[in-house]
Amino acid sequence: MMDISQNYFEFLALPVTYQLDLQALAERSRELQKTLHPDRFSHLSDRERRLSVQYTAYLNEAVSTLKKPLSRAQYLLKLEGLDTFSETQQQLAPMFLMQQMELRESLEDVVGATDSEAELEALRMAVERELLSLREQFDAYYQQSTPSAFEAAAVCVRKMQFFDKLGREIEALEDQLFDE
């Protein structure tokens, strides 16, 4: 029933860019929520409520995709015809994979370490640094806006996915070690 042909940026009236103004994103989101949310239609007919649920779901999906640096990068590439959301085969340089394995090993070593809290924190910082640098690289390639540059940007995205996953594992371990 719902036909939204606009992409997330257009839908939110935001410029198509990686350097997104998160403040503006939050404000637009609030403005649209006030117009579209099902609670605005609760005294109206079922049909209008259903429509509003669909629109609000689209809005929420748009905001959550654009808010996070990784999914924002993936979405920008998707608009250029490169789908990194659902790909399973990832060809990455052996050097990079080696580095990943080493990082993973250090994560496993944290469990038995004498000062596991400090080591985990150091690891978290390292991951954060890598992610920051990958985001900068991505943006540089993305702005070049040529087919080969988009391919290079996709490689950055794949690397970000690795670090993002590692970051989540660090958090899970943190919960496990210090919460119970």
């Binding site: 403005e31 579209l36 049909r47 629109y55």
Partner: peptide, 21 residues
């Protein structure tokens, strides 16, 4: 009637998005 007026509801929704932004 709901089905017959769906297009109108969708147009109004789009219109209000435009107004909001």
């Amino acid at each position: 009637l709901s089905q017959a007026s769906d297009f109108f509801a969708a147009r109004r929704m789009d219109q209000s998005i435009k107004n909001a932004l």
